[in-house]
Design a protein around this nucleic acid. Structure first.
Lengths: 225, 225
DNA sequence: CCCACCGGTGTCAATTACACACTAATTATA
DNA sequence: TATAATTAGTGTGTAATTGACACCGGTGGG
């Protein structure tokens, strides 16, 4: 039996793009410019090209919406309920991306009337099953943050320990003890001092950078309780 | 633009079926009865029906190969490189399943010339990108075993602590200390005594069963170091 | 110059993780 | 039927990790 003898679904990628802005965890959504769900907010995504890998498709969507390519991107889950799209059978491979907020200007892509950041703690109603997808992405982000060094992907290249702690607190939704946080993050060996300081408010703070050769080391070793 | 205006890939599910047999971690493979890769061993799978959810498709494949339906099944990853199938664009959503070996007789499904268990430590060459998929599944199984109570899915309903420890050792590929193992597994509160004993060799051993109301509790709490 | 603000530091107590060796109950064998 | 072989079952001491907790330091602004 040949490939063409089987009915083929449409396949899309959706990319949940997280960032930190103004001490808030935000996600990039687009306002749909066409039916179905015209005018509703949705996770950006699009059809997978026939000669394009899934990851390439996700990177392409990411770039279309943000102009950025070199960020953390991870496959999340594949959603394929037969009735998740009223137009017909559409299976979507969801990815999530983490990027620092600075220097990213959301752009409305082809199908979108508008694109903007939304706080994950205050979302509009979403098209399709996108509320489920987003909830799952958030859960996975929190989980990864506790066990791996992925949090740095949301910060600028150089950051202070207070900024890093604030990021963790926003994402996890809880306060952390300053001294314990510093001890743990420093003993994990995933960051190093840049030598520079951030000045401007109060005592100058040491700037740190992420040691990218350290990513693998932290995997499977819980960072926070 | 309508759905039909985009080229549609074929979508399959592949199911990596693990079990424990004779103190070995084994996986069910089929020998392909048709091109491409005719005569090679492969992970069982098939096309997703147009009105069938991905999980339903995975359950269907599982049942076709084993006759069993009520086992642990989890979505693993979606593989979609454009050239992973020589017939054309085929995206596969991989699942993995865990089942106790007893009372499962592998059956060769439609496309298969033969089906049998293989030790994950001694595999034949595999069709498509199935070696990659299997390696990834094994990694995920080990990871899950350390952090969750998923290991019980591979054992019969009643089991001794020695059998459970042997299962962990086979899957993780390392020896564990008996006293520490028992202390940890018992204090996790995920198993309970059945009251019965297994006799026949040496001192009779208490039989335990998995407390299925305990699955959720153990999630995200590491069982082994 | 002093005050406000944020950055940075250490200890102690409790818990948890790890290494480690013998006795107990049965079955097989001499 | 005594003895050996086999598997089950048990506890302690030590090291490492976690978590709670309060004060001094450097800079900018008034």
């Amino acid at each position: 039996m040949a490939l063409e003898d089987y009915p083929r679904p449409s396949v899309t990628v959706d990319v949940i793009i997280f960032t930190l802005r103004g001490n808030d965890l935000q996600v990039l959504l687009i306002k749909r410019g066409h039916p179905p769900f015209e005018g509703m907010w949705a996770i950006p995504g699009g059809f997978v090209g026939i000669d394009e890998s899934l990851e390439e498709a996700a990177l392409r969507e990411l770039e279309e919406e943000t102009g950025v390519r070199d960020v953390y991107l991870e496959q999340l889950y594949t959603f394929g309920d037969p009735d998740r799209d009223p137009r017909g059978r559409v299976i979507t491979v969801a990815y999530f991306a983490l990027m620092p907020a600075h220097a990213v200007q959301p752009r409305a892509g082809d199908d979108a009337a508008e694109a903007r950041w939304w706080s994950v703690y205050d979302l509009p109603p979403l098209a399709f099953d996108h509320a489920d997808i987003l909830a799952y992405a958030l859960q996975r982000l929190r989980y990864k943050l506790e066990y791996t060094a992925v949090g740095f992907e949301l910060l600028p290249e150089a950051f202070t320990l207070s900024e890093l702690q604030a990021a963790y607190e926003v994402i996890l939704g809880e306060k952390l003890d300053k001294r314990n946080f510093r001890r743990k993050i420093l003993s994990a060996g995933v960051i190093e001092e840049t030598g520079a300081y951030r000045t401007g408010e109060g005592r100058p703070a040491k700037l740190y950078r992420f040691r990218d050769d350290a990513v693998a080391e932290v995997k499977a070793r819980r960072l926070f309780p």
